[in-house]
Computed example of a mutant assay.
Amino acid sequence: MSNDNHYQFEVVMTCSGCSNAVNKALTRLEPDVSNIDISLENQTVDVHSSLPYETVLEKIKKTGKEVKSGRTL
């Protein structure tokens, strides 16, 4: 989809369970989310989505993880 936005969030994740929880929450947004790339090492969550930034941010926050920052790339 050409109208995809690329968002990158800095999320506090301490284990693979944390990153899996974020991944599971974001996959529920499909097909509006086309690509999810989570790096536990870098503490980043990259999301390609046609949804607004706030929608994706709220979905990550609902997992209970602290979102330190986020930006549109």
Rank of each mutant, 00 (worst) to 15 (best):
M1V: 10
M1C: 09
M1Y: 10
S2G: 13
S2L: 15
D4I: 06
Y7A: 05
Y7T: 03
Q8Y: 12
Q8H: 07
Q8F: 10
Q8A: 09
F9W: 03
V11L: 11
T14I: 08
T14M: 11
T14G: 13
T14C: 08
C15H: 05
C15I: 03
S16T: 13
G17T: 02
G17M: 01
C18I: 04
C18N: 07
C18R: 08
C18G: 06
S19K: 13
S19M: 09
V22L: 04
V22E: 15
N23M: 14
N23P: 02
K24H: 12
K24A: 13
K24S: 14
A25C: 02
A25L: 02
A25F: 00
T27P: 01
R28M: 09
R28T: 10
R28F: 04
L29H: 00
L29P: 00
E30M: 11
P31R: 13
D32C: 01
D32L: 03
D32T: 01
V33Q: 01
S34N: 07
S34R: 03
S34C: 03
S34H: 04
S34Q: 07
D37Q: 14
D37K: 02
D37M: 07
I38Y: 07
S39T: 01
S39Y: 07
S39N: 09
S39Q: 13
S39H: 07
L40D: 13
L40V: 11
L40G: 12
L40K: 14
L40R: 14
L40S: 15
N42T: 14
N42A: 11
N42F: 10
Q43W: 08
Q43F: 04
Q43G: 13
Q43T: 05
T44M: 10
V45K: 07
D46S: 10
D46T: 03
V47H: 01
V47I: 08
V47P: 05
H48N: 11
S50M: 08
S50W: 04
S50T: 14
L51P: 03
Y53W: 07
E54F: 09
E54R: 12
T55A: 08
V56N: 02
V56F: 00
V56C: 00
E58R: 03
E58A: 14
K59W: 04
K59D: 03
K61V: 05
K61Q: 15
K62N: 12
K62R: 13
G64C: 06
G64F: 11
G64K: 13
G64S: 05
G64N: 08
K65I: 05
E66I: 11
V67W: 09
V67L: 09
K68E: 15
K68N: 15
K68R: 14
S69E: 14
S69K: 08
S69C: 03
G70F: 00
R71H: 15
L73F: 09
